[in-house]
């Protein structure tokens, strides 16, 4: 029997916290990225921010789709960064290291999100 807090397990709470973190990052990306795009800079951040925001919201809602949206944003990030700076480790570091670490955590939440979805299906709330 897993530890429960209210009617959620610890891993479910951690998943929620991760979702909130991704929402905050997404907000920063959308707001700052819009600013940057309007200043004539890269549009990557605002586009990626929309994916992150959506991903975070779905994760908080306990939807597996949220995790996949994040992983999609991560794939976009890698493709974009390789396009922008090539295989230069120093330049890939700020662009991909943090998001990839976060991506590992997000991947770990997929079973948790599945369980949450299944539970809701059983309750008929999906």
């Amino acid at each position: 029997m897993p530890t429960t807090y209210g009617n959620r397990t610890l891993t479910e709470w951690l998943t929620l916290v991760l979702g909130v973190v991704i929402i905050l990052v997404g907000l920063f990306f959308v707001i700052g990225g819009a600013d940057l795009a309007m200043l004539g800079g890269s549009v990557y951040y605002v586009l990626c921010g929309i994916l992150l925001l959506a991903g975070g919201v779905f994760m908080v809602m306990g939807r597996t789709l949220g995790a996949f949206l994040y992983l999609g944003a991560l794939a976009y990030t890698w493709i974009w960064s390789l396009w922008e700076v090539g295989f230069s480790p120093v330049d890939l570091l700020p662009r991909d290291f943090g998001p990839t670490l976060l991506g590992i955590l997000v991947a770990l939440t997929i079973p948790v999100l599945r369980r949450m979805e299944t539970r809701r299906t059983l309750r008929g709330t999906v």
Binding site: G32, G33, P94, R95
Partner: peptide, 10 residues
């Protein structure tokens, strides 16, 4: 991270 990189880009 991309956060401070975005800050510096702006």
């Amino acid at each position: 991270s991309p956060i401070d990189q975005l800050f510096c880009r702006i």
